[in-house]
């Protein structure tokens, strides 16, 4: 048996939420994580979900099944973190793949880190692809800003959190989604919800946490620190928002170029240190 065949990948799947209609769906990043797992050769993929199965989320869970996995292990009745930890341990996985952030609730992106800590495994976030699996280690590509990439080697077992730039998840097909199984798991050690675990449970915070629909953040004004009263007045009186763009007609090519460069520099997308 080759070493690669021993790779067991637990994929953490949560219920997502469509950004516009808030309808339940497969979470985009989790689906990408599953996609990465499915593309690994000779790896056993163990999809895990902690939560209850109900009519509200069944379709969303099934749409993971529609990606071509035969079952999802359902860990019900549990603190999420504890459930995940036990689920991962009992599945004997040596890689955990998950999204970086949940689409519902707090979506703080802390869960992968908390899980890694509980498992005592290293965590890499920003994962875009797994290049190679060796004995005890994995070679990964990590997303950097502007589409750049960095290569990392991480010792296994490890938690890997997928970047939104990772490959788009394959389409979910109706047939396999309907036929796939969502199998409740009996975990041996689940009842031990100790006091320490509950600490992350928001209900116990002294301050009441409140969720509201996201407010539009105000655009920052360019502050004028004018010295004269007249300027301050003018600045205050000026209209708050620009309407329409600037159209330059009949200017020379050079002037046009200057305008463009000015804007590029303002937006800091033009790097003058680059090669000529």
């Amino acid at each position: 048996m080759s070493l690669n065949q021993a790779t067991r990948v637990a994929v953490l799947l949560s219920i997502g939420q469509h950004p516009v209609t808030a309808r339940a769906r497969r979470a985009d990043q989790d689906a990408r994580a599953l996609e990465l797992a499915l593309q690994l050769n000779h790896a056993d993929v163990i999809p895990l979900h902690v939560g209850q199965l109900n009519e509200h989320n069944e379709a969303a869970l099934r749409s993971y099944l529609g990606m071509g996995i035969s079952q999802i292990k359902l860990i019900g009745n549990s603190d999420i973190l504890l459930g995940l930890e036990q689920g991962v341990r009992e599945s004997q996985a040596n890689i955990v793949l998950c999204g970086s952030r949940a689409e519902t609730g707090e979506g703080s992106g802390l869960v992968p880190y908390l899980l890694a800590k509980k498992l005592g495994w290293p965590i890499v976030s920003g994962l875009v692809s797994i290049e190679k699996l060796d004995q005890g280690s994995a070679t990964l590509l990590q997303a950097l800003p502007r589409g750049q990439r960095r290569k990392l080697k991480v010792s296994l077992p490890a938690v890997l959190a997928v970047d939104p730039a990772a490959a788009v998840a394959r389409q979910s097909a109706f047939g396999p989604a309907q036929r796939g199984a969502i199998t409740p798991q009996k975990l041996s050690s689940i009842e031990a919800v100790s006091g320490a675990e509950v600490k992350h449970n928001s209900a116990l915070h002294s301050f009441l946490w409140q969720f509201q629909p996201a407010k539009k953040r105000p655009k920052r004004l360019k502050i004028i620190k004018a010295t004269s009263a007249r300027d301050r007045f003018k600045a205050a009186a000026a209209k708050a928002d620009a309407s329409g763009g600037k159209v330059l007609q009949g200017v020379s090519a050079d002037d046009a170029a200057n305008e463009i460069i000015k804007l590029l520099l303002e937006e800091s997308v033009l790097n003058l240190d680059g090669h000529l």
Partner: peptide
Amino acid sequence: TGLWQVNLKEQPISCVCRAAASTQDLTRE
């Protein structure tokens, strides 16, 4: 995480964070 506003005047100080993939705001301590 995703904090974008701090209300210094409140006691305890509270803050507003983007939650649920930026579709919600969470106000917390």
